[in-house]
Each structure stands twice: as C-alpha cells, then as structure tokens.
C-alpha cells in the first residue's frame, strides 16, 4: 500500500491482543486489517504474524495503528516484556464457547498489571466466536461477560471473526477511548530525542572520524 505520509497521521497507537491460545486473536486481527478469515483447519497456530499496520479515519483524522499478535507466545505465558511496552490499548480475547478461556482472563489481567507501562492503558474484553451460538455451544453468556468487564472497569463487546460481527467496533472503540485519554499518548508521540531506531537506519552518515 502506498504509505500514508506521516504528516497526515494525527497519532500512532500500539494495540495488543492477549488471551488464551485458540480464542481467535489472529483471526480477529486478520478480519480487522485484511478482512479475511481462514478456516481453523487452514491456520495452524499463529505463524508469521508479527504485527499489522492499519490506518483508520476517526472524526476526520487519520490514526495509524500497529496491532501486535502474540506469535504463539501466549500458550505458556512467555510473552516478552517488550511486547507489552508502550501499548496504549489492549484487547483481551476469550472464546464464548470455552468457559476456561473466560476464567483465564484473570491471569491475563495479572500479567497486564505486571508488565504494562501505564495504569491508564485502555482495555477491551472481547468474547469471540459468537457465531457458535447457533450450534448451541456457548458456555459464557453475554451477561456474564458484561458483568466481568464492569467489575474490571473495561470495555466489552461480543464478536465473531468468522461473521465479522463486532470486529471493527472492538478495535475502533479502543482507539476512540485512547484518543479521549491524551495523557496516554501525547508524551509518547514525541519520542525522547536521541533514541535510535534501527528502522530509520539511514541516519546522517557523519563519515569517518579521521
């Protein structure tokens, strides 16, 4: 895609996905960024998805989102601390057809408390795979999900990466909340001078010292 010129971007946000393996984090991400969905048989556990970039328009401003996937490191809770660092929004995903994944959200909140760089980080709980309702395999009711989110003081939505229900809304709502909380991101937008990033490798070449 022709990159949007940076001057048109109002801000860049880092969003994360966390939650148990198999809750469909990658599917949610792919649905949101590429509008694709792969059948579970076709996707092996997350391979090759590091993060995705998407530019969204909200209230006539452009925001660049870098959305990070777990790369399978959630399976044994070995996510790296740099994964959490600098995130403004976190999407905690459970599978409405698996009670265990809902109950494990507590562990993920713990992990988030331990590693996230700001207490203010915006959290959204997503109950994924609501499409399974029709086959009668729902194990966590919408009410329960809502109640838990209220208790934890987070946003909540039910979604299905398969049928698209709620996916865009989940991401956009997080971004809106971030925009409403300038203290979360305004400082970080002006990176401390002197920080070197490898991506902008072609820094001024001062030539040889001698």
């Amino acid at each position: 895609m022709p990159p949007t010129p940076d001057k048109e971007i109002a801000a860049t946000f880092k969003l994360l996905l966390i939650g148990d393996s198999g809750t469909g984090k990658s599917s949610l991400l792919l649905r949101f960024t590429d509008d694709t969905w792969l059948h579970p048989d076709e996707v092996s556990a997350t391979i090759g998805v590091d993060f995705k970039v998407k530019v969204v328009d909200i209230d006539e401003s452009k925001y660049k989102l870098t959305i990070w996937d777990t790369a399978g490191q959630e399976r044994f809770r070995t996510l790296t601390s740099s994964y959490y660092r600098g995130a403004q929004g976190v999407i905690l995903v459970y599978d409405v057809s698996s009670r265990a994944t809902f109950e494990h959200l507590n562990l993920w909140f713990n992990e988030l408390d331990t590693y996230s760089s700001s207490q203010e980080v915006i959290k959204m709980i997503v109950g994924n795979k609501v499409d399974k309702e029709s086959s009668g395999s729902r194990e966590v009711s919408r009410k329960e999900g809502e109640a838990f989110a209220r208790k934890m003081g987070t946003l909540f939505i039910e979604a299905s990466a398969k049928t698209k229900t709620g996916v865009k809304d989940a991401f956009i709502e997080v971004v809106r909340k971030i925009i409403e909380t300038p203290s979360l991101w305004q400082k970080q937008q002006n990176k401390t001078p002197g920080t070197i990033h490898m991506n902008d490798d072609e820094a001024p070449q001062g030539g040889c010292a001698c």
């Binding site: 391979i47 998805v49 490191q73 044994f76």
Partner: peptide
C-alpha cells in the same frame, strides 16, 4: 516465535 518457535520458560 513469529516463525513458529515454541517457548517455555
């Protein structure tokens, strides 16, 4: 991990 490596600490 992005290329499929499995991690256990």
């Amino acid at each position: 991990a992005v290329y499929g490596g499995v991690y256990m600490l």
